[in-house]
Write a protein that binds this DNA or RNA. Structure first.
Lengths: 152, 152
DNA sequence: TTTGTTGCAAAACGTTTGCAGCCTC
DNA sequence: GAGGCTGCAAACGTTTTGCAACAAA
């Protein structure tokens, strides 16, 4: 898999998208992209805003606005794992993966499964163009299993 | 698949759950369950509330409260298909199915795939107890594809 | 009688919007 | 210079909470 995407590569992808859509290339948008690039794991608008606002003048509204564009050009993927919180993750420099969601502690673990991926991706729908997919597997993680056992 | 679950069967499942958890068997909870039983397709708290309130004294808060219990005892499944709205569906009397979500018009179609279902369900995780799963496939539906073509 | 559950209204929360000013093109 | 984008604050819609009254056990 393409594990090595430099910031410059990602940035030029975003620039290309903005040019195509006649969007303006503002410093805010690049700052948000760069912040996401250096971020590990899942994030939301508030988290990126908090990280940036320390030494950069941005507003939450701009973060939301930029996320929308990043989502359409597939640089980030939006998730909603049961809670009300919308979470995102980078869609570059990472393998396609699925999510194990613990319904007790809400923790999320990732897993990859080549067979599953192929099964989903090769499925064709006569009247539907697939863009991407999300598989969420819900259950109880090992830590919470222990807790339940110890209570009984 | 078990396509024939009478309301009485479902009701007694719920009763059993409430007994086990030492919850009170209130008329409101049964009214909400019955309303859901007769509902087709996806629904949310507001929809059930609106249907019930016509000839029954309930509050939205109670609907939310009851949904939480119905979710834990797996009589309903919670979904969040990208939008901010939380949607639910019955988890009885229906086949396990996946969702095709159109990113343009937000319409949702269901599809079943036995092979996929088996592939997911037989996947075992050493430290994780699977309860259920949701597969969302995002893309563009036929109607929206036409629109895009006609614009260009 | 006890205390879980209710309706109601207010609050909370994440997200969106309206607008005047700014800055990219 | 035009108008897309910004920050700010107010508004929004869904969900949660606090509380006194109610009713299941």
């Amino acid at each position: 898999m393409k594990e090595e995407n430099s910031y410059e590569q990602i940035r030029s992808l975003f620039t290309g998208y903005m040019t195509d859509c006649k969007l303006r290339k503002t410093p805010e948008r690049y700052a948000i992209l760069e912040c996401i690039y250096h971020f590990t794991g899942h994030f939301n608008a508030e988290m990126i805003y908090q990280k940036l606002v320390v030494n950069f003048r941005v507003s939450l509204a701009t973060v939301y606005n930029t996320f929308e564009h990043l989502e359409t050009c597939k640089l980030i993927i939006r998730h909603q794992f049961g809670g009300k919180l919308t979470q995102y993750e980078k869609a570059f420099g990472t393998q396609i993966h699925n999510h194990l969601v613990c319904t007790q502690c809400k923790n999320i673990k990732e897993f990859t499964d080549k067979q599953l991926r192929i099964a989903i991706q090769t499925k064709t729908f006569s009247k539907f163009d697939i863009s991407h997919y999300s598989l969420y597997v819900y259950g109880t993680c090992s830590k919470c299993k222990e807790k339940i056992v110890s209570i009984q």
